[in-house]
Design a protein around this nucleic acid. Structure first.
Lengths: 193, 193
DNA sequence: ATAATAATCTAACGCTGTTAGTTTAACGAG
DNA sequence: CTCGTTAAACTAACAGCGTTAGATTATTAT
């Protein structure tokens, strides 16, 4: 009936758009289908399940985050690189909260391809730390610390957990980044010893 | 029919038990009702909605976390207090992941009482930092940084985001806490200046 | 003993993801 | 230019979800 020849890419694209504008929580296959002027069951000609679509949106989200991070650290070193990387991460989380949530909800879905895509997030961090004289092992730990700080900050701010005190959230954020840089410098001293 | 006179507390207690053993994601009112040998509709004599029950479980979770934190810092000061507090937080997140998730999913539900309960989480952190010579404003920021690190670390480990490298997660955790203590010491110097 | 309260029930609504089976439009081959 | 294949779309249905309205019934208070 008035066949429009939708492709898998069309559907993933529409899902991304819909999640970004209406929110991840209110996303549903039926609503997606309705926007494409299709019945929900017809989606199954292009995707295997809701989970698979979710994963596909996740790939997109991770690639977007990686691109923003690589742009941020281009031509920068040490503290400047770290600050710029953190800012890019922070801005991504704040400006595209629904897409960011997709990344977070991703690893729940056990999937090796996702696991591999995780390296896309790690790589820019390792590059940004390259200017510090650290052992490979230190970098693996510090990469985790960086991600913890960034993710913890973004998700708690988004959840409204930072409204308890009247002090500026931006100031808190800069203090958190300063803490990580202090740790980097301190680790560098230890590596030299 | 064989009325058993269930109370609101019975239902909240059963929900906690069920979430803790079966997981938050697979929790449903119908399954809860079934375990209480009741029909789902009957739950509405004791609770107003699924959200309200969820909030009630959240109160329990926050009070449990607060208790663990206060126990942890009793009679301790400065770095020792912070490390002990962090350990308690970390252990809570690892040992009771489903209950911990309830706390995280809580602020989404706009509720002033929850907002107030949030202070229960902040208070032990402020107490633990009391031994450092910091301004009140510094403490408000640092409290946010602490929560970011802890929450970020716990939720990423739980989500499986830390499996990318073969280095010990416990070592990464200790490095993260060390970073926070470095920041505390550094902030103390600034406050004196 | 009677009246009020509240715990429980049944039945239903609209929402969700998903499957099976059917129609039909488009495309490629003879 | 028709015929056969492919696949995009359909309808109908199922089981699950939270939730509501209204009837029933056991306990409690008077």
């Amino acid at each position: 009936m008035a066949r429009q020849g939708l492709t898998r890419a069309d559907i993933i694209g529409a899902a991304i758009e819909m999640i970004e504008s209406e929110g991840l929580h209110s996303f549903s296959l039926r609503e997606l289908a309705s926007r494409l002027h299709i019945k929900a069951a017809s989606l199954y000609n292009h995707i295997k399940s809701s989970d698979e679509l979710h994963t596909e949106v996740g790939y997109y989200a991770i690639s977007e985050l990686k691109r923003a991070q690589l742009d941020a650290i281009a031509g920068k070193e040490r503290a400047e690189a770290i600050e710029s990387l953190a800012d890019a991460y922070y801005r991504f989380g704040k400006e595209r909260p629904e897409i960011y949530k997709v990344i977070l909800s991703l690893p729940m879905v056990r999937n090796d391809a996702i696991h591999t895509a995780g390296f896309d997030i790690v790589e820019p961090i390792m590059t940004a730390m390259a200017g510090y004289h650290l052992t490979r092992e230190q970098m693996m730990h510090l990469q985790r610390v960086f991600r913890s700080i960034m993710h913890g900050f973004i998700s708690q701010e988004e959840a409204g957990c930072f409204r308890q005190f009247p002090v500026d959230v931006g100031d808190s954020y800069r203090m958190a980044v300063r803490g990580f840089i202090l740790l980097l410098e301190n680790s560098e001293k230890e590596a030299r010893a």
